[in-house]
Amino acid sequence: MFNGLTLGALLVLVAMGLTIIFGALGVVNFAHGALYALGAYAGLVAYEYTGSFAAAMAAGAAFLLAVGIVIERGLIRLYYERPAEDQILATFGVAIVLVEGLRAIFGGLARNIPAPSWAAGIVNLRVTLYPTYRIDVLAIVGVSLVALYFILYRTRLGLIVRAGIEDQLMVNILGINVTRTFLTVFGLGAMAAGFAGVINAPIVTVSPDMGADVLVQSFVVIVIGGVGSFWGAVVGGLIAGEILSLVAMIEPAYSQVALFATMALVLILRPQGLFGVEGRQ
């Protein structure tokens, strides 16, 4: 149960970036898993220089914010008006470049960032013993999500993003430079992925391909929850985390299968996803 919660929380964070990028920009970002891996490596480098996990988290988030901005300005921006196939190819290309770049620089070997000292050890939860770090992850993700929620629902930027998701052209007619908002959204989405990469690094191993499964799982999360929906990503992520870890306890080979089966079930019963709005284009 608790493993599922931690895994779910991380999926929520990655999927949140994916879903707000898709919701606001209409771009399916196949580079999201690579951004997550890049965040983990940025954290790793920062950790090796400073020995501080907090520095690693800050580096992962800040570096990925910058990378997100560069990718949006340099590439994604040219693809907003293009068909989805082109967008997928372009973001997929970015993913390959990033992953192979990581492999060239760091080699294919798996590395690790140890859990920070303030979160080392084990907690006795009465029912089970549990690594302290995994509980801290829940808190860190919780705080990040509250921050994202605040940005999206309580600020000017959020108002523009929510309006832009629905009707870009009208927002533009109302005197707002929507493409500049897109830049911020892409940057925030990439930052969420990178940050998730760092905080997941002590739990999994860091390797160039670490984002591949996470990307697929995050897609499933937002399909279950409803594409473009904040609460959909939260609930979808938690459900996916539980399914993956509970099934893995019985038979690891089936955990992904169970996840896809759940997605298929949701799609049959509620095609727009649990929190999706019907008829959004």
């Binding site: 929510r162 007619i173 005197g175």
Partner: peptide, 20 residues
């Protein structure tokens, strides 16, 4: 008309005024 359906009446008005 292109009212932003997911925003409230007031949010629609605020949105319109943001850049002015």
């Amino acid at each position: 008309r292109r009212i932003i359906g997911g925003l409230t009446v007031e949010e629609n008005l605020v949105l319109a005024g943001l850049s002015e």
